[in-house]
Design a protein around this nucleic acid. Structure first.
Lengths: 137, 137
DNA sequence: GCTTGTACCTCTAGTTACTTGAGGTTTTAT
DNA sequence: ATAAAACCTCAAGTAACTAGAGGTACAAGC
């Protein structure tokens, strides 16, 4: 029987976040002491660990919720789980593409800046003028 | 004198977003018709264009607010503007690094999944078990 | 000059995934 | 028995908007 603090330490999930997950129904309602404090069992640790890991990988709460439902049902969740993971992978790839374009653009802007020059600032000029951009973004 | 709709079309910023920018003080209070409708001038178009472009590049509202203040003051804003842009570039680089690790991890997880196999699902197993990961994330 | 349709107005609440704070109670250790 | 640490609830705040309800103003055509 773990207190919320102990669960927090074991899973690296902050206490208010655990309570939040309970509130939105991602975590089950835990048992309580007579005084009203939460007490957790091993399955709670496992579930929260799953959530934490999936969040670290960037999955949304909605996606995690789906995955948890799938894994509870047991009946060949693989196809659906695979689809969710693949969709997420696609999103991640898109984000990387986008960020790489931004990186390029920012590098270009910054490289043109010669701090010290009065009045003219390529950073500010570039930001104000999309036409100066090399690529779309 | 532009209506809010005309400004929106010229800058590609949605109407509620323009009103939101006004509310948080990022855009100046515009003139009004006797009937109370907003009317904008060229300097508003320029400022909103700047904001739009900087947002597209991923800068936060706070950073943009700083840049706008700098460019208004005129006294060699270059050094500060350059610092803001460089900081942002660093953030972007970090994000890319992180996403690339996630991409790798997700690819590995997905590639192990053979949809159809009953009961065992590598996607779900991997998410539940951080120990299966190759790298940090 | 009147009517109609589009564009505009304000205000409230919702989104995501939490975090922070106030004010009070329970547990644990001495 | 006491005191410190950990816990409790509830409300509000964060970023950057978006959506919807219910009502008013403007521009064009007749």
């Amino acid at each position: 029987m773990l207190s919320i603090g102990a669960l927090s330490r074991q899973t690296n999930v902050k206490i208010p976040t655990i309570r939040y997950y309970e509130e939105i129904g991602l975590m089950d309602l835990p048992g309580r002491t007579t005084g009203g404090q939460r007490r957790y069992v091993q399955s709670d640790v496992d579930r929260l660990g799953f959530i934490r890991h999936a969040r670290d990988l960037g999955l949304s709460i909605a996606a995690i919720s789906d995955l948890l439902r799938l894994s509870a049902n047991g009946d060949n969740p693989c196809a659906d789980a695979d689809r969710i993971a693949k969709e997420h992978l696609t999103e991640v790839k898109e984000k990387i593409k986008h960020l790489r374009r931004l990186e390029k653009e920012l590098k270009r802007i910054v490289s043109h800046c010669h701090a010290g020059t009065v009045g003219e600032c390529y950073v500010i000029e570039s930001l104000g003028n999309h036409g100066l951009c090399v690529e779309d973004h």
